[in-house]
Amino acid sequence: MNTTTLEVFKRLRELLAGTDKTTQTILRILAAVFGGYALTSSMLAALVLLLPWTKADALFFSVLFPPFFYTGALLWAFGASTAQRAWRNLLVVTFSCEFLALAAAWAR
């Protein structure tokens, strides 16, 4: 790794670790919109792959959930004590669901 990449990486880290109000709010909004999308998608994928039902049933059952998942993510992003914690929580759940989904797909 050369020094420029390291420099960029360091700057980015500083930015993401920002504790001032503007950075926090921007990070929270990003977490709500994109983290929410990722969370909703991965939870749905895990849900439909784990359900031992016909595809059609799983599809129309899964439709009932995205409003809860996305709204939950939004509330979580703004309710967490810091934006970094919000991101961490969202990412942990997203990747766990992703992992569950992959495991379920592999087991099928």
Binding site: S42, L44, A45, L59, L64, P66
Partner: peptide, 17 residues
Amino acid sequence: LTVTFLMLLPVVPQVLY
């Protein structure tokens, strides 16, 4: 929202179909 999400989210159709 249940209507728009079925139109917008590609993940479930992608995973199942």
